[in-house]
Amino acid sequence: MSEPTPPEATLYERIGGHQTFVTLVDAFYAGVATDPELRALYPEEELGPANERLRMFLEQYWGGPKTYGERRGHPRLRLRHAPFAVTAAQRDRWLTHMNAALDSLGLPEPELAEFREYVTRAAQFMVNAFD
């Protein structure tokens, strides 16, 4: 009788787990903090709470801890972003900072491409206001 095949490692595990996501999200929000138009989308005085929410969401999405769901329930991304007018220009600004943060990690190409493809789709999905 053969041994069961272990499940494939999640992207969360393949790219280094928690610390990689901390580094990614910190780099992303460092960019957001310097972008007045994008920063205006974040109503909280400090970006810390948004940083934590995004990190927990991304960790859960990519196979890490389920902390986001335990604390906040189902992500409902579009519903949670509905109170904010998200334009195509803001999407592009968000992607600029997210892609720069992804590039800073030095990820292997397959994981980088998979992550970049997801954030591009997700950012497009958030657009809810048109010029």
Rank of each mutant, 00 (worst) to 15 (best):
L95T: 03
G73S: 09
W62Y: 11
Q90N: 14
G69A: 08
H81L: 05
P65R: 15
Q90Y: 09
W94L: 11
G63M: 07
G64M: 02
T67Y: 04
D92C: 10
A88D: 15
Y68S: 00
Y61C: 01
T96M: 15
T87R: 03
G64F: 01
R93V: 04
T96R: 14
W62L: 08
Y61R: 02
W94V: 02
R91K: 13
Q90F: 09
G64H: 02
H81S: 02
E70M: 08
R76N: 12
Q90H: 15
R71Q: 13
T96S: 14
L79R: 13
R72A: 01
R91H: 08
L95E: 00
Y68Q: 00
T87Q: 08
G73F: 08
F84C: 07
K66A: 14
A88N: 15
H74Y: 12
T96V: 14
P83Y: 01
H97I: 11
T96K: 15
R91I: 02
E70F: 06
R71T: 13
D92A: 02
R91D: 03
G63I: 05
G73V: 10
L79E: 13
T67E: 06
A82S: 13
G64I: 04
G63W: 04
W62Q: 05
W94C: 04
P83I: 04
H74D: 06
R80W: 00
W62P: 01
T96P: 09
W94H: 04
P65F: 10
L95G: 00
L79K: 08
P83M: 03
